[in-house]
């Protein structure tokens, strides 16, 4: 078993400059390992201890790194990690719920922390975290859905706030939140399905907006929504699989944003998540709504009616 940080080089300045993403990075790494069937590769106790150390007792949420301030982004990562590690008893649930509920605004939107930045990403974080904790009923769902409706554009997509341009990652957070809130009827499925399918560019990869460059992370943002809408057949899955695989580093391992670029844990996680939804052989199922192992979400009774491609049993093989 490896220490969670042994793979990261603490002599690297970049390691320290990204401390504000540490908890998110642990979630990405852990989830990717789960999908690849190696959940035990990282030391469970050590990981839980680190999450505990990120608790910000003053604010009542989790920070991205010990000593930093609590934020909704890292709070969700903490809850995801502890859920995956079956260690939710470490969470001071009432306080976290209070923290999350305090961030919902009168118009239904959700701020990232007490400093008030509003973004549909945070709404998703709140909805998912409360759902994983079994406390979603305390959230004002109607107002949240009404707010998401205001963020919807004529192309079927969603922006980060009302008036914002549709963006694949934002579409994921909004549609997945609507799925958890059982409000998928708010989605124009034909229009959005069209917009998402058109994100695939000639080399098989996906971009996040019209006339932009492809990037492996969009494989997940777009695919997850297509899975939620049960329209995964609307794109060329083989070409996408090839594209994701081509962005691997064949020597050092890991997946980059595009072929030939530097790999990182973020793109590795979303690349593996995409491959799982594509039915790539040998991987475990990923829940596209929660972006966590499907089996886990199923055990918690939270599974929604998404549909990914069937798991193939060998490379190039049929299910």
């Amino acid at each position: 078993m490896l220490n969670i940080f042994s793979l990261l080089n603490k002599d690297d300045l970049a390691y320290h400059l990204t401390a504000h993403l540490r908890l998110n990075a642990i979630y990405w790494g852990l989830t990717a390992l789960c999908i690849m069937g190696h959940q035990d590769a990282l030391d469970r106790e050590e990981m839980i201890k680190f999450v505990d150390d990120c608790w910000d007792d003053e604010i009542g949420g989790y920070a991205a790194h010990p000593g930093h301030d609590a934020h909704l982004l890292s709070t969700l990562s903490a809850i995801q990690i502890l859920t995956t590690q079956d260690a939710l008893e470490h969470v001071k649930v009432d306080r976290v719920v209070l923290f999350i509920l305090s961030l919902q605004q009168p118009d239904g939107s959700v701020a990232g922390d007490q400093w008030g930045e509003i973004d549909t990403r945070f709404l998703y974080c709140a909805v998912q975290a409360l759902s994983l904790l079994g406390r979603l009923d305390e959230f004002n769902k109607e107002k949240a859905v009404a707010y998401l409706r205001r963020c919807r554009n004529f192309d079927g997509g969603f922006g980060s706030s009302p008036g914002g341009e549709s963006h694949a990652a934002q579409v994921f957070t909004c549609v997945a939140a609507l799925a958890i809130l059982d409000s998928l009827h708010e989605v124009d499925e034909q229009m959005l399905g069209w917009w998402l399918a058109e994100r695939q560019v000639p080399n098989g990869g996906f971009n996040g907006r019209p006339e932009k460059l492809e990037d492996v992370c969009y494989s997940f943002w777009v695919l997850s929504v297509l899975a939620i809408l049960r329209k995964m057949t609307w794109i060329d899955s083989e070409k996408l699989t090839t594209f994701i695989l081509s962005a691997q580093d064949p020597e050092g391992g890991g997946i980059a944003d595009r072929p030939g670029d530097m790999v990182d844990v973020f793109h590795t996680h979303f690349g593996v998540a995409g491959l799982s939804l594509l039915g790539y052989p040998g991987l475990n199922d990923l829940d596209p709504v929660y972006c966590m192992p499907a089996e886990l979400i199923k055990r918690k009774g939270l599974t929604k009616a998404w549909l990914a491609l069937p798991r193939r049993d060998a490379i190039g093989g049929k299910p």
Binding site: A25, D249, D257, D261, M262, D264, V265, F266
Partner: peptide, 12 residues
């Protein structure tokens, strides 16, 4: 690096 965008991979 936790998240790289458009950084070319080089053999070192």
């Amino acid at each position: 690096m936790v998240s790289n965008h458009n950084v070319k991979r080089t053999r070192v």
